[in-house]
Every structure is written in C-alpha cells, then in structure tokens.
Amino acid sequence: MHSLKPLTPLGGTTPRRDEYPGLILMENPDWAMASVAARAGSVKKLASAFTTFAQGKLAAVESIDNSGKITNFWTAPDQWMVMAPFASHESLAADLKAALGNTASVVEQTDGWCRFDLSGAHAVNTLERLSAANSRRMQANRVCRTQIDHLGCFMLCHKAGQDFSILGPRSAAASLHHALTTAAISIA
C-alpha cells in the first residue's frame, strides 16, 4: 500500500457538504471512472464483453445504465463512462482493459473529474440558473453534457426533479462549487 494521502477536488481530506433550504450539495470523490470507447467495428463485441464483465448494458444515447454491478453512461458516439465505487474499484481502468481486450480503448478518468451531488426540491431551481439543459423535465437515468460556468460538465439525473450529479473538470472544482452554491443561495 502506497503512502500518499489523497485530497478531494476541493482540496479537502473529507468531501465538502453544503446545505441550503431545499438543497443538499455534496462533493463526491468516491467514484472510480474510466472511459470506454469502441474500437472500429467492435461495438457489438464490446457490448457483449462489457455485459460479461459488468452484467449491465452499455447505455443508450444520453442515458445511464444501472442494471448491472457497475454503472455506465453514454458520453459520445461509441464512447461511454464507466463508474464504480472508488474504494473497491480504484483499478477500474486496468480491470476493464483486461476484460474488454481489443474491443475498446480504455482510459482512466477517475481524477479527470470532480463530482457534486445535488439533492432536494430546489435542485432544478439551482440547475436552471446554470445550464441550458432542461433539468426540470429530465427523466431519471438520463445524462447530458452541458456547460456550467463555461465548463463542460455532465449532468446526471438519478431521480427526476430531485437528485442530480454534476461532473465537471477537476481543476475547476472550486469555481464549479462556487457557481453551484451561488445559484443555490440565489433562489428566492
């Protein structure tokens, strides 16, 4: 076991938690992530190899698949982001590469992102001040890539109108957090 202590994207040793009337905002560093992109002509082979590995399915366009042991969501044509709990899956990328072989290009993305979970009745009121995405009508298990505070982010909906995650570039975590909290306070 190595000796290096991790920091969260916001620079803490523990994740940041903010609470507002109708909204809980949580920094969430507990997900390992890896991108999976199909090699040319290998989408079908990849899909079946992935199902063998994760039991779930590769998600449809702008969707999240939660049906297996680990989650994935669509990011681009023939490309997905796979997510699993960090504590048990820090080696997610290597494990995926081993399982998927030459059907896919796998890249570790765990620390490419910061993740904030928004929960509560004011979640959409907050998000509609930040993103052009129609968060108010977003269904559960849908995802879209959108701009928040000029940053390319993924918006994941876990429960319509209620529970969302925002994945943004890790280096801009502080700015993204500031934008989220500012909008949360702004709601009349």
Binding site: S35, A37, A38, R39, A40, G41, Q79, S105, V107, E108, Q109, T110, D111, G112, W113, P169, R170, S171
Partner: peptide
C-alpha cells in the same frame, strides 16, 4: 473517418 482511433482528454486526470 476510416481509421481505428479513439481520443479522450486526460489533462485533469494526472498531476
């Protein structure tokens, strides 16, 4: 478009 090549940014992922 016929090349078998996949891209993704990893700027943020590595210190």
């Amino acid at each position: 478009p016929g090349l078998d090549v996949q891209l993704i940014s990893t700027t943020e992922a590595w210190a």
